[in-house]
Structures are given as structure tokens and as C-alpha cells.
Amino acid sequence: MSSRNELKSRPYSVPDGYFDSFRAEMSRVPLPAHTAQWRKAAPYMAIAASLALLVTAGTLALNRFSAEEDISQEDYILFSDNLISTSIYEDHMQEQIAEVGLMDEEIIEYLIFTGVSPEIIELSK
């Protein structure tokens, strides 16, 4: 592989006159005003706030549910064994996400903005 120099050559072409037309196109693109860094993060902060709110609401709902039941730790463990893991919590989250109307693309942009790697999601599946 190291001795095959033809492998290092570009196996791609571009349409005729592409670079000139790209430069011309770029000169017509309306350039956004220079804004403060925090303004760029605002939409992602809004999504983060929505998710944080959902988590808080879900946790409070679960705490209230378990506080109403005066059960011993032993009963609690037995009861937990009969539950599908985090099903109440997940259902609640799914409903809330549907209500807030977060789209896949918005969630993807948020994950990218926060630096979550796709490998982590793949591993958790």
C-alpha cells in the first residue's frame, strides 16, 4: 500500500467550473451577523431545559408514587422484581417528548452539540 502511489491520487472529479461557481455562490450567500457565543447555544439550551424539566417531573412523579406506599424495603425489592425496568419512567418520558414535539433531527443536533458520541448510544441499545 505504501509503494502504490496511484492509490494516493484523487479518484474524484468535480463538475466543470465548479470551484468558480462555488466562489460566486458564496459571495451571494447572506452572511449572518456576528453574534455572541451564548446566542448560538440558545436553541440547544432550550432543548436541554426541556429534557431537564421532563426528568425532574418524572422523578417527582415517581417519588410521590413511592412515598404514598408505605412499604418495607423487603416488599419494595419484591415489588421491583415484578416491574419491567424503568417502564413507568420511560413511558412518561415518551409521552412528554411527544407532547413537547421534539423531532429526531432536533434531538440529533442537541446530541451533537453536547458532544454525545453515537458509539455511546449504540452501546446502550
Binding site: I108, E109, I112, S117, P118, I121, E122, K125
Partner: peptide, 13 residues
């Protein structure tokens, strides 16, 4: 890198 990650996330969906 973000473009590649976006594609990986989309492929997960």
C-alpha cells in the same frame, strides 16, 4: 466529524 455523527445518529433511528 459532526456530519459523520449526524449520519450515524440517523442510521440508528
Amino acid at each position: 466529524l459532526n456530519h459523520l455523527r449526524r449520519q450515524r445518529f440517523r442510521s440508528l433511528v
